[in-house]
Design a protein around this nucleic acid. Structure first.
Lengths: 125, 125
DNA sequence: CGGCATCCGGTAGGATACTG
DNA sequence: CAGTATCCTACCGGATGCCG
C-alpha cells in the first residue's frame, strides 16, 4: 500500500541543509571551487580565470568559502604580497558532487538549448 | 614533464555551461526538482511543500524549468482547475547529481557549522 | 598585488489584490 | 485553484578610489 499521507511531512529542508545549499547554489562559489580543485591559485589567477567576476565578488566569495571551512587562505609575507587559496580536505570532498553536476551540464546543454528554443517558438505564438 | 602553461587555457565555463549552471544554482529550482523527483505535484502542493517561497517565485521557477525542458506542465480542464507538474526524462537525469549534492550537505552540515563558529570567533577578536 | 570602503543603480523578489 | 498584475523595497553586485 502506497504512503498516502498528505506530503513528505516537512518542508524539504529544515534550514540547516538550506544554509549549505545556499552556499553551493551560489553562482561564483561553484566556479571557484572547481578551479581550486585543480590546484591552488593566487587571487589574481582566480580573478583572471573566472570570466565576469568582479574583484569585490571574488573577495566576498572567498571569504564565505573560507568561513565555511572549504577554502584555506595563506598569506605570504613578501613584497609584493602573495596570497594563495586552496581547498581544504572538506572542500575536496565537495568536489565530487560538483564535478558530477558540471558534467551533467556539459552533457545536456544541447538538450536544454533545444528545449528553450522549442519553448520560445511555442510561446511567441 | 608537468603542464606548465599559464592556466587551463580558458575561463572554466565558456558560457553555454554557465547557462545551465545558473539554472541549477538557483535557490528554488533545486528544491522544486527534488520534490518533483518523488512524485508529481500540483501547484498548491509545491507551494505548501517549499517553505518560504512566494507564489510569484514558484510560478517563475516552474516556467523556467518548463522552458529548459526539465519539467512538464499538465493542465486538466476541470473545475476547479488542476495543474500537475512532473519531471521530464531529462529532468530525471538531473536528479542523481542533485541528490548527491543534497546528501553531501546533510553529511557535512555539522562540519560547516563548526567551521563558521570557529571563523566567527577568530575574526571577532 | 591583494585587498577593503564607499557609493549607487538595477533588479530580484516579497506583499497584496485581482482574474479565469 | 492556479495563476497574472502592480507596487515597492532590499540587497546584489559593479565601478571607483585608497591602503599595506
Amino acid at each position: 500500500m502506497p504512503d498516502t499521507r498528505p506530503d513528505p511531512p516537512a518542508e524539504v529542508e529544515d534550514c540547516p541543509v538550506r544554509e549549505v545549499l545556499d552556499r553551493v547554489a551560489d553562482k561564483w562559489s561553484v566556479l571557484v571551487i572547481v578551479l581550486l580543485g585543480r590546484r591552488p591559485h593566487r587571487f589574481g589567477e582566480l580573478h583572471r580565470g573566472i570570466e565576469g567576476i568582479s574583484q569585490r565578488m571574488l573577495t566576498l566569495t572567498l571569504r564565505q568559502l573560507e568561513r565555511d571551512g572549504l577554502v584555506r587562505r595563506t598569506v605570504h609575507a613578501s613584497v609584493p604580497p602573495r596570497v594563495d587559496y586552496e581547498l581544504t580536505p572538506l572542500g575536496r570532498t565537495l568536489l565530487a558532487p560538483l564535478t558530477a553536476l558540471n558534467e551533467w551540464a556539459i552533457a545536456h546543454r544541447d538538450d536544454i538549448r533545444a528545449a528553450r528554443a522549442r519553448y520560445d517558438r511555442a510561446t511567441a505564438e
